Each structure stands twice: as C-alpha cells, then as structure tokens.
Amino acid sequence: MCESGDDEMKRSCVFRVRWGKESFSIQISATATLWELKQELLKRTNVLPDRQKILGLTLRPYLLADTVTLQEVCNKNEYNLILMGTPEEQLQQIYNHAPFPEIVDDVEGESHRTEIVHFEKCMETLERNIKQLQITLMNELRPQKRLLVLDLDNTLMHNSYSTTIQDAIRPGVHEMLSTVYPFYDICIWSQTSWRWLEAKITEMGLLLCPHYAISFVLDRLAMASVTVRKKRQLKKHSVKPLQVVWRKFPDHFSPQNSIHVDDLSRNFVLNPENGLKVSPYTTKDTNDRELFLLTNYLVLIAQREADFSKVNHKKWKHYERKHRRELDNIFQTFF
C-alpha cells in the first residue's frame, strides 16, 4: 500500500518516473486522483494529460478513470513508472516538417545478396554493444510466446502525412496486432531516434490498446553497423540484429521462435533466416492489404511451424494462400 501515518490525509505515494532520458520523482497524497497525478506530470514534462501514457501501475491506465484515487491502485510503497508522451511543441515540429528529418529511406539501395566484410570483428563489436544495452520492458514477457519484431516506418506507417500521424497508419495495423497477440510477444524496432519513435507510437495508439500489449521498443541505439560487399563495392549501413534480443531474453526467444518483419531486407542481414520482407508503405493507400495477409501468415506459422528459421519467409504469400483454409479452425480455437 501507499505510505501511511496517523493522519489519513498525510498518506502519500512516491512515484519514480522515467521519461525518455529523464528521471524524476513525484510525491503526492494517496487521496489524490489519477488526474491530479497527470497534472503533476504535466508540470514536469509539458505533456498534456490526454497524451500521457503511464506504464507501471497495477492496472493498465485505459482501465482507470481519471477520478480514481491513487490509494485504490497503489499496492506497494513506491512505484517505478514509465511515462510516454510528447510535449506539444515537439508535436508541432513533427507535423510541420516534410520530409521527416531523421528517417532513413528504407526503400532505396536495398541489397539482397550481400557479403559481410570482417564478420568476426562485426560480431565482437555487437557483443560489446549487447552488454551495454538495456532493454526496458513495457509489459512482461509471457511464457511460451513467440517473438514478433516489427519495423515502423514504411512498414506500419508512411511518412508522407501532413496533418496527423493517425492518417499515416497502414490499413490493418491494429487488427494485425490484436489477432497475433495470443501467439506473440511484440517488439517495435525503428531506426529513428527515441524522440521520434516515442512520439509516433504514442500518437498511433500502439501503447494502450486493450486488445494487445507491446512488450518493448527498440530504437537506432540497438542497431549495429556492418560493412557489406555488393557488386564489388563496399557499403556500410546499420542493421537490426535479433541477437540483441536473444541474448537479453534467452529463456524466451531464440532463432527458432522469432520473426522480424521489415520493408528492407538489409535490416536482417545478420539473421536472414528470421527476416520477412513486406512491400513498403510510402503513401496513403486505403486499398493496401499487406498486413491482412501478413496476419494470416503469422498465425499459421505460429500454429504449424516448430522452427521459424527453417521456414522460407521469402515465399510467405504463397504459404499463406496454400494454408489459408486452416485459419477458420485456428480462429475458432483462440477467438
């Protein structure tokens, strides 16, 4: 419970808040409401209450009314909270600039056949980076779930929006995440900085949907640099090595139960057997069906395949068409 004294009105809760790279503490009366806590967070961060996503309370915030008192949800002395949300002035920057300032073009220059130069040195560097990297869980990992790693830009959304991020969401994003959640723990991995990544996933509504939960999010700091040889030329670029996740959570994830979905195949050059390339989503298209087909495929392999690394994910659409009839029985079992 929250701290208690002789006087009920003097009871207080202590919240240690992590917001991006910043950390601070808030001590507030246990009789205060969730709305009052949000007002204190507003003073510290300039994130409006409606945009605040608070992770770490005993119940998910979307289950709580703003009028609930903190003593109703506090069941220990102190709380470590993660606050996600973007100040209004930063949101204006996001909506006003075009093209997006820190987005690397995920389409141009894709490389299918590559040879990694100085592979041993690359793996040594990766090993050092893994030891230094800290992954913060937003939601606890569940036993016996597979891992779904999703790229963000040009996979789940495009960057040609001029009004709101909601307009840039690819058709089927929430439907896909809700459908695959019984089978997978979900990670969003973007090659942008945390500042922009946090803003986008928050505005997209990926964090507080009642039908699924994002386990953790990775930004460009978790990526590794590799030098590859293509057509006798050497090129250096960043990749998303799943080894990072496998080493951090060895009791949960491995090459056998992990899949990485991206619009750029060079992002999984260090673990190609676990990579699945989708068509890039670069502008608004209400007729785009890629994620609906992908949903079927992810459900099918979760039920049919013991080792994802032995599945030819390059032919994922053929696999989906071949086994689509099995989906009715699967959905009847799990939904």
Rank of each mutant, 00 (worst) to 15 (best):
L126G: 07
E127D: 15
R128D: 12
R128C: 04
R128Y: 04
I130E: 11
I130W: 10
K131N: 13
K131I: 13
Q132G: 10
L133E: 10
Q134T: 12
Q134Y: 03
I135T: 04
I135W: 03
I135D: 05
T136A: 08
L137H: 11
M138N: 09
N139P: 02
N139T: 06
E140N: 13
L141W: 10
L141E: 08
L141C: 10
R142Y: 03
R142F: 02
R142V: 09
P143F: 04
P143S: 11
Q144K: 12
Q144S: 12
Q144N: 13
R146F: 08
L147K: 14
L147E: 14
L147A: 15
L148C: 13
L148D: 08
V149K: 01
V149A: 02
L150T: 11
D151M: 05
D151Q: 07
D151C: 05
L152H: 00
D153F: 00
D153H: 01
N154T: 12
T155G: 06
L156W: 12
M157Y: 12
N159Y: 01
N159W: 00
S160T: 03
Y161L: 04
S162P: 03
S162Q: 15
S162E: 14
S162F: 11
S162R: 15
S162L: 13
T164I: 15
T164G: 10
T164N: 15
I165F: 03
Q166A: 14
Q166F: 10
Q166R: 15
Q166E: 14
Q166P: 02
D167M: 11
D167Y: 12
D167H: 15
A168V: 08
A168C: 10
A168Y: 06
I169K: 09
R170L: 08
R170N: 09
R170D: 12
V173N: 05
V173L: 04
V173Q: 05
H174E: 11
H174S: 09
H174V: 06
E175P: 04
L177S: 06
L177F: 08
L177Y: 10
S178G: 03
T179K: 02
V180R: 08
Y181L: 00
P182M: 08
F183C: 07
F183M: 09
F183Y: 13
F183D: 07
F183Q: 09
Y184L: 02
Y184T: 02
Y184G: 02
D185V: 12
D185M: 11
I186K: 01
I186F: 00
C187T: 01
I188R: 01
I188S: 02
I188K: 02
S190Y: 03
T192F: 00
T192W: 00
S193E: 15
W194D: 03
W194V: 01
W194I: 03
